[in-house]
């Protein structure tokens, strides 16, 4: 029960920040895809860089464990391409479609309904996908530091510096 309350609080804070930063908008999401407005990329990458440092600190302190998703090239690549096609049509991703509804953008509702149907269709297709696409290029639960055989604190600063360089470039180009 306490876990459910934590989920609700985390979601409310995230939804609040998404709305305040104006990222739950079709125009912002399509703007990023059309390389016109990098607002959502700034938001996503900022949250990733901050959580990367925080989560690995918790890991080192023994306060958390990683939850690594398996790398399956067939599923990751094909799924990513298919997701991108749908995202470009809808203009909201699963979490932001719900957030968009919260600020009155009710075209997100059609997206949410489509997503429920898409999830249902995937459940139907899963038995055959599991035997085909989801076996192609299966590397299991790997991480970049583990594959390179380096400590994560060698990799994390590189990601942070790469992210900050990208931010600097976005601002220079006024994207």
């Amino acid at each position: 029960m306490r876990i459910l309350v934590y989920g609700l609080i985390a979601g409310m804070l995230f939804g609040f920040f998404l709305q305040k930063a104006r990222v739950i908008r079709y125009d912002k999401q399509l703007g990023a895809m059309r390389l016109m407005d990098m607002t959502i990329v700034k938001f996503m990458l900022s949250s990733i860089l901050v959580s990367m440092v925080g989560v690995y600190t918790l890991l080192d302190l023994g306060l958390a464990q990683l939850s690594v998703k398996p790398t399956v090239l067939g599923g990751n690549i094909l799924g990513g391409l298919v997701f991108g096609l749908g995202w470009g049509l809808l203009g909201y991703c699963p979490g932001t479609a719900v957030g968009a509804l919260g600020e009155g953008r009710w075209d997100g509702l059609w997206g949410v309904l489509g997503m429920l149907v898409g999830a249902g269709l995937f459940a139907e297709a899963y038995p055959s996908l599991k035997k085909t696409v989801l076996t192609w290029g299966d590397f299991g639960k790997i991480t970049i530091p583990q594959v390179l055989g380096l400590n994560h604190w060698v990799i994390i600063p590189l990601f942070v510096m790469g992210g900050l360089t990208l931010f600097w470039w976005f601002e220079k180009k006024r994207l």
């Binding site: 799924g79 470009g88 699963p94 297709a125 696409v133 989801l134």
Partner: peptide, 25 residues
Amino acid sequence: SRIRRGVVAFTGGLIAMFGARLADG
């Protein structure tokens, strides 16, 4: 046209979710 937007948004949501689940995202 709201209908056109509705049809495209629904279709987009359906495709995006299928892809997201395929990629295990």
